[in-house]
Amino acid sequence: MIAIDTNILARFYVEDPNDPEAVRQRPIARRILTESADLFVPLTVILELEWVLRAFYGFGSDDFARVITHLLGLSHINVENWPSIADALELHREGLDFADALHLKAGQHCEIFYSFDDRRFARRAKKLGVKPNVTVPS
């Protein structure tokens, strides 16, 4: 099995004709993802991929969801903790930040999820009925 990094996935999913390095690396990333027999994608790579696609390439929630749905559907790709990622993706589609959704899914066995992040996160999670309850401590 071969593990892959965020940049391999970003090059596979994003065509960036204005970046000569991206133009050179994209065919290599395509070859890796289409010709390798067994690939492993760490959970942290998925989290970083969302950040790269959103912050650097301007992907919206739906675009990111399509990427992850495609990736999870590839039979030769083993994504660490893919059920939590799939669940977090659904929450992301419903308006939660992907990282926050993934954090909640990782802590779903807990009663409370404390966060100073913002009250919007807590309100949105409550509206969606997500467990654990997000609480802003005071």
Results as ranks from 00 to 15, higher is better:
D117T: 08
A99F: 05
A86K: 10
L102R: 13
H103A: 07
A88G: 10
R119K: 10
T69S: 12
P132I: 10
A88S: 09
G95F: 03
H103N: 09
C110W: 13
N81Q: 07
R124W: 01
A122D: 04
I85Y: 02
D100M: 04
R120K: 08
L71Y: 13
G73H: 14
K105F: 01
P83T: 11
R123Q: 13
D100R: 02
A122G: 05
D87W: 00
D97M: 01
I112L: 10
N133T: 13
S75T: 14
D118L: 03
H70T: 15
E94K: 09
E94M: 04
Q108I: 06
N133G: 14
L96P: 10
R93G: 00
A122K: 01
H92G: 03
L74K: 15
Y114I: 05
V130E: 04
R123C: 06
A99N: 12
F113H: 11
A125F: 05
Y114L: 15
E90N: 05
A88F: 04
I85G: 03
R124F: 01
C110G: 04
A88W: 09
T69Q: 09
D97R: 00
P83V: 08
L72T: 14
W82M: 05
L91D: 00
R120E: 04
D97Y: 01
K127N: 05
K105I: 02
H76M: 08
N78R: 15
L74V: 14
L91R: 05
L91I: 01
A101V: 05
S75W: 14
G129I: 02
L128H: 08
S75R: 15
H70F: 12
D117E: 12
A122T: 00
K105D: 00
W82K: 08
K126F: 02
D118T: 07
K127E: 14
E111G: 00
L104W: 00
S84H: 12
L71S: 09
H76W: 15
S115D: 03
L128P: 08
H103L: 15
I68M: 11
E111K: 07
F116A: 14
E111V: 11
H92V: 01
K126I: 04
L102A: 14
N133H: 13
A106Q: 13
I85F: 03
R120Q: 06
L96D: 03
G73Y: 09
A101Y: 02
L74E: 09
I112R: 08
S115C: 13
R123K: 09
A125G: 06
D117I: 07
L96W: 01
H76L: 07
A99I: 07
P132F: 06
K126G: 09
S75L: 13
